[in-house]
Simulated assay, not measured.
Amino acid sequence: MINHLPAAIASLNPRSFLVKRQGRLLFEHYRDPLLASEPAIINSCTKSVLSALICIAIGQGLLPVPAVTPVTDFFPQLKADADIRKRDMTLQHLLTMTAGFRWDEFGGLNSFPRMTREANWIAHVLDQPLSDPPGTRMTYNSGVSQLLSAILAEAAGKSVARFAEDTLFRALGIEAYEWETDPQKIHTGGFGLRLRPADLLKLGELMLQKGVWNDTRLFPAELAALAVRPFAPASPPYEGEYGWHWWCRVFTKVNGGQDALPSSRDRKPVDYFYAQGFGGQFVYVVPEAELVAVVTQDSRKRKQPTLFAELIGPIVAGS
């Protein structure tokens, strides 16, 4: 099934495309060979790296159980907020983007660009009014990712980048990276990380292996499972469901190949999860197929269709 890929890549013309299955590299493509060694912006895939770091911190006892830990433990100023519902906000609500803040990433409110123009991003996010009670609706929000980055830095007693080096990057052999910070020098939780495509692939492999790398457990398997569990349906214009800063979807595999008119009994749902970043950055993980894939692009379109059906689905369908 791998033979179809060059034609698909030719039409897509990505910066890079890598597929690994059962530990074997099936395909590795770079628009320019130099791109293999160049850390590239991964945009919101940064969120999924942060998710792995949060799992590590929980596993080390640096952070408490997210589902029952109020955000006021880290930002006590919320106790004085006029909207008492903010006191019900938990760490898990931040991880699943169900905190309830009134936020429109790039739409009418233009919330994300507004945040990046503020002198204090954390204060700005905490000051936003609620549109929903915490836990009731997923709203895509890079502001809550910045709150998580601040929480992680406080819990670890070091910068997020240093914590990443000590607990994740060194273990995965990631040496080349760049990471932006906000005005308070807190590393950006929702974007701003640059990684090489092959290193981004390692993140997917780590999640496929449920927190284990080279026979060493970096975080508990139950946390790896929680991170990619669908907690809430995505709010339009986003699709699928959302976990702990990972997207979750289902692909319909037709047993026995791509039949033109398959019966319902031939259809088999296959769960997968993925990281997604602005401009067409993706890390796909298909546990059933033991497959991980990375796509990086440099599109300027805000809405990026998932490329799973075109590039990854045929491999899964043929398995």
Results as ranks from 00 to 15, higher is better:
Ala161Ile: 06
Gly189Pro: 03
Ile186Pro: 05
Ala155Ser: 15
Glu222His: 14
Arg162Asn: 09
Ser264Gly: 03
Lys253Ala: 01
Leu218Lys: 06
Ala176Leu: 13
Tyr242Ile: 10
Ile151Glu: 12
Pro269Ala: 02
Glu239Asn: 07
Gly211Lys: 14
Gly243Ser: 08
Glu178Gly: 01
Ala232Gly: 00
Ser264Tyr: 11
Ala176Pro: 08
Ala224His: 12
Gln281Ile: 11
Leu261Ala: 12
Val212Gln: 12
Ile151Thr: 14
Ala224Cys: 08
Phe191His: 14
Glu165His: 03
Ala153Pro: 01
Leu223Ala: 04
Pro230Val: 03
Arg249His: 13
Gly257Trp: 11
Arg229Tyr: 13
Pro237Leu: 05
Val160Asn: 02
Leu172Ser: 04
Lys202Pro: 01
Glu205Asn: 03
Arg217Trp: 08
Ala164Thr: 03
Phe278Gly: 00
Glu154Gly: 08
Gly280Ser: 07
Phe278Met: 09
Gln276Ser: 11
Met207His: 07
Gly192Thr: 05
Lys185His: 15
Leu208Gly: 00
Pro230Lys: 09
Ala221Leu: 04
Gln281His: 12
Leu223Met: 08
Arg196Thr: 02
Trp213Cys: 06
Leu200Trp: 09
Gln276Val: 01
Val212Trp: 10
Thr167Trp: 08
Ala234Val: 08
Thr252Asn: 12
Ala153Ile: 02
Gly256Trp: 13
Arg267Phe: 02
Gly211Pro: 06
Asp271His: 12
Ala225Ile: 13
Phe163Cys: 00
Phe163Gly: 00
Pro233Gln: 06
Arg267Gln: 14
Glu178Ile: 01
Ala176Asn: 14
Pro269Phe: 08
Tyr177Thr: 04
Pro237Asn: 05
Gln258Val: 08
Ala198Glu: 15
Leu206Asn: 09
Gly279Phe: 08
Phe169Glu: 08
Glu175Lys: 14
Asn214Val: 01
Gly240Arg: 10
Arg267His: 07
Leu200Gly: 04
Asp166Tyr: 04
Lys185Leu: 13
Pro233Ala: 05
Leu218Glu: 09
Gln184Thr: 10
Gln281Arg: 12
Tyr272Asp: 01
Tyr238His: 15
Val160Arg: 09
Gln258Gly: 02
Gly157Tyr: 09
Arg196Phe: 07
Leu208Met: 04
Trp244Leu: 00
Phe219Gly: 03
Ala275Cys: 06
Asn214Thr: 01
Thr252Ile: 08
Phe251His: 12
Ala234Trp: 09
Ala198Gly: 03
Lys210Phe: 04
His187Gln: 14
Glu205His: 04
Trp244Ile: 02
Asp182Cys: 10
Gly279Asn: 10
Ile186Val: 15
Tyr177Lys: 07
His245Gln: 14
Pro237Gln: 09
Leu201Glu: 00
Pro197Asn: 07
His245Phe: 15
Tyr177Asn: 07
Glu222Gly: 00
Ile151Met: 14
Gln276Arg: 12
Asn255Arg: 15
Gln276Gly: 02
Gly157Ile: 08
Val254Lys: 11
Phe191Cys: 11
Pro183Gln: 14
Ile186Tyr: 13
Ala260Leu: 11
Thr181Ala: 10
Phe251Gly: 00
Leu206Val: 07
Val254Gln: 13
Thr216Lys: 15
